[in-house]
Design a binder for these strands. Structure first.
Lengths: 205, 205
DNA sequence: CATTTTAAGATACTACGGTATACTATTTCA
DNA sequence: TGAAATAGTATACCGTAGTATCTTAAAATG
């Protein structure tokens, strides 16, 4: 009746086992959402013991995040170059909507809330421990705008660079979707004024 | 050995019981912080049964939030009038720091994360079900600026009105404190450009 | 004052996140 | 090849959020 006899001839290890767990986690979160996702059920489906999960992922939210990063929709990481900062930002954020569209807000809300216990809000779009991929993309778009003479990149503070991520996350948590209209609104009403107002604001320092 | 014989001659009800629970909750969260705060311990200290708690507050984070609102530091709700939007915003946010200073970030992080499961990020500064007190104050300051001719209040969207709250919450969750320097930075780098840039941006709609 | 309704008391229970322990199959490396 | 280290398996366990149930006090109704 052991797992070895029924499914596998040998005991799985390392990456093979890890992949099996992530795969089971991905299936489960798609079936039941985050709230009803249980670690025991994942272990059962992956034919693995619970300590195996906790040896790799320190908590439920981390496992689910890993599964989404591995199996979820891949975002387009092309840096847009439309000729204006406004256009670049709108296009870039549009590339991100797939991530949020795949999951309903309900499924994401609990996950983000749990992640928040461990990591700061502005890092929540990061893949793992390495730096914030999303902020990197925003920075590249801003550097292009610098070259065009729209702004001075070196004047932008860390807080300002994190603002786009914060606004998108807030939007996803608060409202149902992140559609084009919302993106255009955020860019026009908040981000363009902030980024293009920096030159003058810098004089106040 | 019943609670009635030991402490009270009659069974407490309504507000009296509620106050006893809130008081016990306030003491407990100050002693052990949010993470180690347990509903059972509150019930025990208040000489109340656990269902009494859940009949009034649907979850732990809500009870703790209620206790903080009731017994925590009262914020100064005076609307500042310094002569400029910038000055008003800096002064207003300064009045809020007491709330965050009273609790260490560790204590607050878990609470905010749990609250986030139920309520949207930009409403987290609300007292109860009624409208957002903080956003109300921001609106008043902005209307003053309108009268001075600094901006056109009717052009400001809900998203923009919620931005100050979002930024402050993010700051408290992400960093340790909310001091004067940070407030000045947020106002100068983000809020002033957004609010005073609205007139022009509105033409794009 | 009798009856009905509301809500508190007491307590047991469920479910789940996360941990501990004892044992065993693989890998590594001398 | 044999010993030691690593990382699985299996399972029991703990703590706590939140719920259910049953009894009983007190308030409301008439």
């Amino acid at each position: 009746m052991s797992k070895l006899s029924s499914e596998h001839s040998t005991r799985r290890r390392g990456k093979e086992l890890e992949d099996a767990v992530l795969s089971a986690a991905w299936d489960l979160v798609n079936e039941v959402g985050y709230k009803d996702f249980t670690m025991s059920e994942v272990a059962k489906r992956a034919d693995a013991a619970k300590p195996v999960l906790y040896r790799r992922w320190s908590e439920k939210s981390e496992l689910v995040a890993s599964a989404i990063i591995k199996f979820g929709p891949k975002i387009d990481v092309t840096i847009p170059d439309t000729g204006s900062l406004r256009g670049d930002l709108i296009k870039l954020f549009g590339q991100l909507t797939v991530v949020f569209d795949t999951f309903g807000t309900d499924k994401l809300r609990g996950l983000l809330a749990d992640r928040l216990k461990t990591i700061p809000l502005d890092k929540i779009l990061s893949a793992t421990s390495d730096e914030n991929k999303f902020t990197d993309m925003v920075s590249k778009v801003l550097k292009q705008a610098d070259k065009r003479g729209e702004l001075n990149f070196s004047n932008l503070s860390k807080r300002v660079l994190n603002l786009p991520g914060l606004l998108l996350i807030n939007e996803v948590i608060s409202n149902e979707t992140l559609n084009k209209d919302v993106i255009v609104n955020i860019v026009d009403q908040i981000l363009v004024p902030v980024f293009l107002g920096q030159k003058k604001a810098a004089d106040n320092d």
